[in-house]
Design a protein around this nucleic acid. Structure first.
Length: 584
RNA sequence: GCGCCUAUAGCUCAGAGGAUAGAGCACUGGCCUCCGGAGCCAGGAGCGCAGGUUCGAGUCCUGCUAGGCGCACCA
């Protein structure tokens, strides 16, 4: 069973190998430099092979990375390191042979062999200008690509039961799923987002009975509350509203009453969840109702489909799906001996529906308590006739809220837990999203409530937003002084020589690649960290370099630079679903 | 018992098999005649344990240890 996140395509061959191709009509210029270097390296390998100096059966995949240490050049490749074995020479020997075939000139000012056998490339200033021109040209689309070529991906996330308010893990899932959707769209995928509403199962029945009991208690305080009922106060509030909206509900025959409360109650919960999510910046393309699957006979269809394929058998009065054929730990019951469908039956029918609607990649984002679910669903998708990797399940880990450095106690059984709405009310939508997106999915994250509301540089979300607000302030004052922001073509970009300026430009050049990595590796936290890095470099620039007040040529070049940083910061924040305030 | 996640600086966390393992916080000391000090600059310390694969392992494999979570004819 494969339980870790599987990229849609392995990005390895794509990013590190020979073909860095961004589709669409406008190729990203900064990445075009990278592509040129890739090609030059491959040509050098071919020439070295032709001359007999190197012998390969095939060229291994290699990395072209931006070194942390600027002394290692603008780009560095490990091609010699990874191909040393195939060449039966030391990495240093391979590297020194290859550099002979890499022509210096044009945008390449120097090529050298360093360390254990890296080939370091030093580029002319011109390529930095290319980055700024790319940002200017592409603006709000900077970093987008057509890598996905329209492949249809369905992201399902949150999918909380409609029996209570959303919790903090739901909030984490919402932030991660929404940003992943934005990232995949930016990479040219045809993305759909869905929330599966589990409104037909036992839990919905229990919820309906809890609601009825609360209604009766409002009339007769001694009326007993079901032992396994939902204890939260929100059920009482809902009961009050129900008695106002439909006072005759308690007069209905029991079965009708239950059916009504189940439908009405879950609808109310769904409406509340949708409103909370909207306030959090998350809108779903579709809220898919489990009850529709039942009403449309889709479960029966699924059973017939599986029966035809021979995936079913009966035992102990129940109908079983032989999921072990497809690598599941054990077979699963689809119809219980009492004739009722199990939860998994409906969920398989739902996934079948997604596939029939033309999605070729399904991504489910689930909480940590559902990891045991992966095997059976991957088995189901295969039994439906699709490849093992069609379904990809991302498991989020738990969230611990910290106040005064101590965990906030939560008890689901007692109905005491912090809801997503409370969290967002307390720390704000931007801080909540950023804190969830800062960490990798699999981290068990500590959410520091005190830090999230702090208005200081210690609070990462403020740190990033403040950088944006500072830029806006500069541009505003320029405008007030009658100084327009020029275009890259109108200024002398070679005046940007300060370390902070160079670092800013290089960092901006990394965004397209970061977006691609974040999307394909399912690592949205890369973008949050990217935004923090870029903001940090900007703050340093701000302290060391002035914009307004400098001589016109330098001032104008810096205005262009600052304008570009604004675009890139805005773009990063937009991908995170976080606002970019002009003033704070 | 089986499965999943985690273990990196005092704390919270990054780290695409590669160069000297990085940030932030905390602690200490500096920086405002100047575009927003909600900022900047400078200082110490670390990969849970044991093997293995590799030219090279925080990263991959195996076995331990510790913490979190899950193992239904519940959803």
């Amino acid at each position: 069973m494969r339980t870790t996140a599987q990229p849609i395509f392995s990005p390895v061959g794509f990013l590190r190998g020979s073909s860095f191709i961004l589709g669409g009509s406008r190729m990203d210029i900064a990445s075009a430099q990278r592509e040129k270097l890739h090609r030059l390296i491959r040509e050098a390998v071919d020439k070295a092979a032709a001359s007999g100096e190197l012998t390969f059966t095939e060229i291994p995949e290699f990395v072209l990375e931006t070194p942390k240490d600027p002394n290692h050049g603008d780009f560095a490749s490990n091609v010699a390191l990874v191909s040393a074995k195939a060449a039966r020479k030391s990495p240093l020997e391979v590297a020194s042979i290859l550099v002979k075939y890499i022509p210096v000139g044009g945008f390449i000012t120097k090529v050298e062999v360093a360390g254990p056998g890296f080939i370091n490339f030093f580029l002319s200033q011109e390529w930095l200008g290319d980055i700024l021109r790319a940002v200017e040209l592409q603006g709000e689309n900077y970093g987008a690509s057509n890598y996905g070529q329209g492949e249809r991906v369905l992201l399902e996330f949150v999918s909380a039961n409609p029996v209570g308010p959303l919790n903090v893990v739901n909030a984490r899932a919402a932030a991660v799923g929404d940003t992943l959707a934005r990232l995949l769209r930016a990479c040219g995928y045809g993305v759909g987002t869905e929330f599966y509403v589990n409104d037909a199962g036992n839990q919905a029945d229990v919820f309906a009975r809890s609601l009825i009991a609360r209604c009766r208690q409002l009339i007769d305080p001694d009326y007993p509350f079901p032992e396994e009922g939902y204890p939260g106060d929100y059920v009482i509030d809902l009961a009050k509203r129900l008695l106002v909206e439909k006072p005759e509900v308690l007069e209905l025959p029991e079965e009708e009453q239950l059916a009504f409360c189940k439908r009405w109650g879950t609808d109310q919960m769904v409406a509340g969840q949708a409103a909370d999510l909207r306030g959090y910046g998350v809108e779903f393309d579709l809220w898919f109702r489990e009850r529709d699957l039942h009403a449309q006979g889709r479960l029966e269809e699924l059973i017939e489909f599986f029966r035809d394929k021979g995936h079913l058998y009966e035992e102990d009065g129940a109908l079983w799906f032989r999921s072990t054929t497809f690598g599941d730990d054990k077979d699963r019951v689809l119809i219980k001996s009492d004739g009722a469908y199990t939860y998994v039956t409906a969920d398989i029918a739902y996934h079948h529906d997604k596939l029939k609607r033309g999605y070729t990649k399904l991504i489910d984002i689930l909480g940590p308590d559902h990891h045991g679910y992966i095997g059976r669903m991957k088995a189901a998708v295969q039994a439906l006739g699709y490849g093992e990797d069609t379904l990809e399940v991302l498991i989020l880990q738990y969230v611990a809220l910290l106040r005064d450095g101590k965990p906030v106690k939560m008890s689901k059984r007692a109905g005491e837990f912090v809801t997503m709405r409370e969290l967002v009310d307390e720390v704000g939508r931007d801080a909540a999203r950023f804190f969830f997106l800062m960490r990798s999915l699999e981290s068990h994250l500590d959410f520091d409530l005190d830090l999230a509301v702090e208005q200081s540089s210690e609070n990462p979300v403020f740190y990033v937003q403040y950088a944006h607000a500072r830029i806006c302030s500069i541009l505003r004052q320029a405008e007030e002084a009658g100084i327009g922001v020029p275009t890259t073509a109108e200024v002398d970009l070679s005046l940007l020589t300060e370390e902070a300026e160079i670092n800013l430009i290089k960092k901006m050049g990394e965004l397209p690649e970061e977006i691609l990595l974040a999307a394909t590796l399912r690592e949205p936290h890369r973008i949050a960290r990217y935004a923090l890095d870029l903001a940090g470099i900007f703050h340093s620039f701000y302290t060391h370099c002035h914009v307004l007040g400098e001589e016109a040529p330098l001032r104008d070049a810096r205005l262009v630079l600052v304008k570009c940083v604004q675009t890139v910061l805005r773009r990063s924040l937009e991908l995170l679903g976080i606002s970019a305030p002009e003033q704070m």
